[in-house]
Measured scan of single mutants.
Amino acid sequence: KYKEAKESFQRFLENHEKMTSTTRYKKAEQMFGEMEVWNAISERDRLEIYEDVL
C-alpha cells in the first residue's frame, strides 16, 4: 500500500499542470500540503521522488 502511495505521488507530480522544473519543493508543499496524496508518504520519500521527477 505504501508503494502505491509513492507511485501515486510520482504520477501526481508528473501530471500536475502547476509543476514545472522551476517549482521549488517548499512552494509545492504550500500548494499541495493539505492533500492526501502529499501526506500519504514520509517527507524523506516525498523529497526523493520530487527530486527524481524534476
Rank of each mutant, 00 (worst) to 15 (best):
K1M: 06
Y2I: 12
Y2F: 13
K3D: 00
K3P: 03
K3Q: 03
E4A: 08
E4S: 13
E4R: 08
E4C: 03
A5L: 09
K6H: 02
K6S: 04
K6Q: 07
K6D: 04
E7G: 05
E7M: 12
S8D: 14
S8R: 15
S8P: 01
S8Y: 05
S8W: 02
F9D: 10
Q10C: 07
Q10K: 15
Q10D: 00
R11L: 10
R11Q: 12
F12K: 03
F12L: 10
L13E: 10
E14I: 12
E14F: 09
E14T: 15
E14A: 13
E14V: 14
N15T: 09
H16L: 01
H16A: 11
H16V: 07
H16F: 02
H16T: 10
E17R: 11
K18S: 13
K18C: 13
K18R: 11
K18P: 01
K18F: 10
K18I: 03
M19I: 15
M19A: 08
M19W: 05
M19L: 12
M19E: 08
T20D: 07
S21P: 15
S21D: 12
S21M: 12
S21A: 15
S21E: 12
T22L: 10
T22S: 11
T22K: 12
T22A: 12
T22V: 11
T23K: 05
R24P: 15
R24K: 14
R24L: 15
Y25P: 02
Y25N: 07
Y25I: 04
Y25T: 09
Y25Q: 00
Y25F: 05
K26C: 15
K26I: 12
K26S: 15
K27F: 06
K27M: 12
K27P: 01
K27D: 15
A28V: 05
A28G: 03
A28F: 04
E29Y: 00
E29C: 07
E29W: 00
E29K: 04
Q30T: 11
Q30Y: 04
Q30M: 09
Q30P: 01
M31S: 06
M31W: 10
M31K: 05
M31T: 03
F32Q: 07
F32R: 05
G33P: 02
G33W: 00
G33H: 03
G33I: 00
E34Y: 11
E34Q: 14
E34S: 14
E34N: 15
E34V: 01
E34G: 13
M35E: 14
M35F: 12
E36M: 03
E36K: 08
E36L: 06
E36N: 08
E36I: 01
E36R: 09
V37W: 15
V37G: 01
W38T: 09
W38Y: 07
W38I: 03
N39K: 13
A40F: 02
A40W: 11
A40Q: 13
A40E: 09
I41Y: 00
I41E: 07
S42I: 05
S42G: 10
E43F: 01
R44Q: 15
R44M: 15
R44V: 13
D45M: 00
D45K: 00
R46Q: 00
R46D: 03
R46V: 00
R46T: 00
L47D: 00
E48F: 02
E48P: 03
E48T: 13
E48W: 08
E48N: 06
I49W: 01
Y50H: 05
Y50W: 13
Y50Q: 02
Y50D: 03
E51Q: 15
D52T: 15
D52S: 14
D52A: 12
V53R: 11
V53I: 09
V53W: 14
V53F: 13
